[in-house]
Simulated scan of single mutants.
Amino acid sequence: MAEVKLLGSWRSAFSLRVEMALKLKGVEYEYVEEDLSNKSPLLLQSNPVHKKIPVLLHNGKPIPESLVILEYIDETWENGPPILPKNPYDRAMARFWAKFLDETCFPAFMKAYVSAGEEQVKAKEEVEKFLKFLDDELKGKKFFGGDSIGFVDIAGNVLAYWFVIISELVGIELITKDKFPNLCAWIEEYLNSSFVKQHMPDREKLTESLRARFQKTSTAK
């Protein structure tokens, strides 16, 4: 078994978080693409609680959950730039914003995408409220981490890439320059970073995958 192995999926923003962190730190690893419709025994054994990717295997020991894995990578490999801030307060706030993205923002986005009528109107209003918090947090900053890409930026790749594509597919524009100028500037800066450009999945391929998923959701309504 390779010293470092990642069980992931090319279409998963959460899997990509881990790949970006490993590459940022210069860690050599073996990537294993999982078929999520037919999960491997290794995945089920490595993450028996949630049975989800990503899972990082380090010397045979499994670490699940993307944000947990990012912290593990940052603490385990000192080479490369830090992912989390060194200052304890800044570190705590980075954890706060990453958790806010995963547990508050992303579910609200998905609700807005799949709902209809009055329910969708309310869902969009909730999303905009959350986006305003992020926009304010980015005021005067290039990235969430300051001048360089860090923990919250990597966590936010869902927002910068996946949700932009989904918004186009379902015809709902949620992140606009007039309402959220700082957030839009961050998305542009982030996606145009040479490091990020190297690792984002092919846009056309991802769009087709997401289109198939959201067509199924629409048909199921």
Rank of each mutant, 00 (worst) to 15 (best):
D102N: 03
I83Y: 01
E137C: 04
L134D: 04
P48R: 07
W97Q: 10
D147Q: 11
I63E: 02
E71K: 13
P88N: 11
S115I: 01
Y161N: 03
N47Q: 01
K52V: 08
I165G: 01
P85Y: 09
P201E: 07
P107C: 10
A21K: 08
V49T: 06
E189T: 14
A112V: 01
D35I: 02
L6N: 03
D153R: 04
E125C: 00
T217I: 15
F143D: 07
A98C: 12
K5Y: 04
E204Q: 14
F130Y: 15
S15K: 10
D135G: 12
K179C: 08
Y161E: 00
T76Y: 11
K111Q: 12
I166P: 04
S148W: 07
Y29G: 04
K122D: 13
L101G: 06
F144S: 05
E204V: 08
F195M: 09
M93C: 10
D136L: 13
R91P: 09
A94W: 03
D178R: 11
V114H: 10
E65A: 11
F130M: 14
S37I: 08
Q120I: 02
F133I: 15
K5E: 13
P54K: 00
K23W: 06
A212M: 05
Q120Y: 10
L138D: 00
V152I: 12
K177N: 14
L57A: 00
M200P: 11
K142D: 13
A108H: 04
L131K: 00
Y89D: 10
F143S: 10
S66N: 06
V127D: 00
F109T: 00
E71F: 05
V32S: 05
F130C: 10
G60V: 07
V18I: 13
N38I: 08
L67D: 13
K124H: 03
K23E: 14
M1R: 06
T76F: 11
Y29R: 08
G150R: 02
F214V: 01
S148I: 05
I175D: 00
S9H: 15
W162N: 12
L159V: 15
F143Q: 12
D202P: 01
L159S: 11
P64W: 09
G140S: 14
F180V: 02
D35Y: 05
W10L: 04
L44T: 03
K99M: 11
K23I: 13
H199L: 15
F106I: 14
A21P: 09
P181L: 08
S9I: 09
L67Y: 06
K52P: 13
G171N: 10
M93N: 14
S9A: 15
E173A: 09
F163C: 02
S209G: 10
C105W: 00
P64A: 08
F14V: 07
P85A: 10
V114Q: 11
F100P: 03
K221R: 12
R11K: 12
R203H: 13
E3I: 07
E188D: 15
A123I: 00
A185I: 01
P88M: 10
I175P: 00
V158G: 12
K25H: 12
L56Q: 01
P181D: 03
K177L: 09
K122I: 05
L138E: 03
C105D: 02
H58Q: 05
A212F: 06
M20H: 04
K129T: 15
A116Q: 14
I166S: 04
A212I: 08
D178M: 08
P82S: 12
L206H: 12
S46M: 05
